[in-house]
Design a protein around this nucleic acid. Structure first.
Lengths: 188, 188
DNA sequence: ATGATATGAGACGGTACCGTACTATAAATG
DNA sequence: CATTTATAGTACGGTACCGTCTCATATCAT
């Protein structure tokens, strides 16, 4: 295994994600990546024949495993914790920085759209599963709509992050959870 | 009043918004605007000295007045109707097409960020007011959190529009409203 | 009608980025 | 050590867009 190749891939993919986050999908260009990665342009093109192939490769980097949620506490606490992780991922992760650019790029590049859809669906699934389990365990009413609730919870966090000047903070999360689960859980 | 100037402004601003929607903030360039507007580049630069001034001017065009919501029906119906309008505005309006590009641009241009924040805040206010009135009228519990509910409702719609392949449809809106107001209103 | 003004058409230099090609050097492999 | 392979550095032609400029033409105001 050639160390030179490993190093090149590592540096370039890192630089690509950083650039995507800092300057957006549009300003992303091969020469900037090469310069930021400390790699020559010829090397860059040897590994990734085109700009899109590099971006596609870089996006893989963003697919992180969400930590397995702890199962202690009541349903409100568990959901709150999960949402705090989500809020964190949407404000302070590499993905967070790239998200606006990806949303824009998704309009014109199906692969990017697919990536976004997968990413959001994947994160939402965990939340839906959590809520479903709570329904099954009798912590939530049997007619509780887990899918819609998950959309509303995730949506509020995305919305605040993308369309308002102040993203959700951890302190505010219990209020959000209470608003969606609150009255429903009061039937317990 | 010179008709030539009116025509130029009208055509150019229209072309600018169209282009912003079709090809995104990045691909937005003066030559494309001129060509699309059927106007020469020299004319373009006489009216708007720079690209950003044109964009700023074009954004004003997007500020449409939301129709005054009808006041008939119970609170669920009124909210549902308002949300349908919102969903419509997020999928089929000139603003809708521009939104992804604007979200991306907001990262680097404070004016664009400000525009987005104002736009979303403005739309949310109507919803919050509606919910507050319902609380005051006893249609919703006194401890109902109108702000958070409005965030969750709007958020779900934005989220589906931006991060998933299928935006909210009118048929699904009652289910969303029920999930957020549903159990709360059952106390009536 | 006549002078003022807005427009059309396009050339222009400048800049930035694309993707390719070539050579010389450095590092890995066996 | 000898050979293969990856890289640096850089020049290149091509394209796209910026913002400026000039000049001829069309349209307005009075």
């Amino acid at each position: 295994m050639d160390k030179r190749i490993e190093r090149t891939r590592r540096e370039v993919l890192g630089a690509a994600i950083a650039l995507l986050g800092e300057r957006g999908y549009a300003a992303f260009n091969m020469e900037a990546v090469a310069s930021k990665a400390g790699v020559s342009k010829s090397t860059l093109y040897r590994h990734w024949p085109t700009k899109l192939s590099l971006i596609a490769d870089a996006l893989e980097t963003l697919n992180v495993q969400p930590k397995p949620g702890p199962v202690d506490g009541d349903i409100r606490q568990r959901v709150t914790m999960l949402l705090c992780h989500l809020a964190e991922a949407l404000t302070a992760s590499p993905f967070a920085a790239c998200m606006p650019g990806l949303i824009e790029a998704a309009k014109h590049h199906a692969e990017v759209a697919h990536f976004l859809h997968e990413y959001s669906a994947h994160r939402r699934e965990t939340l839906v599963a959590l809520l479903r389990d709570a329904v099954a365990a009798g912590e939530l009413p049997v007619d509780f709509d887990a899918e819609t609730a998950a959309l509303a919870l995730s949506g509020a966090i995305f919305y605040r992050r993308l369309m308002t000047p102040k993203p959700y903070l951890s302190e505010e999360m219990p209020a959000l959870v209470a608003a969606i689960l609150g009255s429903a859980v009061s039937a317990e």
